[in-house]
């Protein structure tokens, strides 16, 4: 299968702190990859490197077969424009209304008229289970789950080829978390995008993943299917899945 994103030997340090220490990972076209790992293992940095928000120290990231590390900003921008992202806290623009948030990419980049963009935004809001009534509210008037949905609507509104999900279910009750999981599966399938999710919520990972990889101390220590997750004898994965404090993963206190 053709690789949509191909990360090779990715390194990133902040000062003396090594965050990514040679990450190798591929995401196939239309595949949903979930990267699991504890807090502070470099999951967010990995996503930000792929999106071009953080420049890696070393290594290669190929998107659709084209190198994005070290190329001119203008050339890379085209690659980045095919990406969408759902942020952990939603990251909705609080100076704009809900529909303006969803339509942001359509108005600013695709130069759609405001009237048309609002129609589109409402369409995407419906798709994530929100009614037309919320369109003119400000993001701060919404609950956490609703903000996540608006964030999802904003991420899929530009029809991206790759979508990133940063801890999509963190901070939500289990039922709302499952609703978001379903929405993620549906919306990603609908537009045929590849998805990269980082999470430490195992229930969510099992549900939305085609393939799971585990990141520990800046390296991918294991990858495999959801089925293999339960049968593997990899000590890191077993400790993480069981949620045990005993094992090779040491929590720095």
């Amino acid at each position: 299968m053709k690789a949509k994103i191909s990360v090779k030997n990715l390194h990133k340090s902040f000062g003396h702190k090594v965050v990514l220490d040679g990450v190798d990972i591929d995401i196939a076209e239309g595949e949903s990859l979930v990267v699991i790992g504890g807090s502070g293992t470099g999951k967010s940095v990995l996503i930000k490197c792929i999106q071009g928000i953080i420049t890696p120290d070393e290594g290669s990231i190929r998107i659709n077969g084209k190198e994005s590390v070290g190329v001119k900003k203008k050339d890379a921008e085209e690659l980045y424009s095919k990406m969408g992202m759902l942020f952990q806290g939603g990251a909705l623009f609080d100076s704009l209304t809900v529909w303006e948030n969803v339509a942001f990419g359509l108005i600013e980049n695709k130069k759609m008229s405001r009237k048309q963009a609002k129609q589109e935004a409402i369409k995407y809001l419906r798709q994530v289970g929100l009614s037309e009534d919320v369109a003119d509210l400000s993001p701060s008037e919404l609950s956490g789950g609703m903000q996540k949905r608006v964030g999802l609507a904003r991420a899929i509104a530009t029809n991206p080829e790759i979508i990133f999900f940063d801890e999509p279910t963190t901070g939500l009750d289990p039922i709302m978390a499952d609703v978001i999981n379903d929405l993620i599966i549906n919306s990603v399938k609908k537009i045929g995008a590849s998805a990269l999710t980082i999470t430490h919520d195992m229930a969510s990972a099992r549900k939305i993943a085609d393939r799971i990889a585990m990141l520990y101390k800046g390296k991918i220590v294991w990858q495999g299917s959801v089925k293999e997750l339960d049968t593997t004898d990899n000590p890191y994965v077993r400790q993480f899945v069981q949620g045990s404090s005993q094992g090779p993963i040491k929590v720095e206190i």
Binding site: M83, G84, M85, F87, F93, G105
Partner: peptide, 10 residues
């Protein structure tokens, strides 16, 4: 992360 969100929206 709203500033990062701007970047992801090109």
């Amino acid at each position: 992360e709203q500033i990062d969100a701007l970047s992801t929206l090109s």
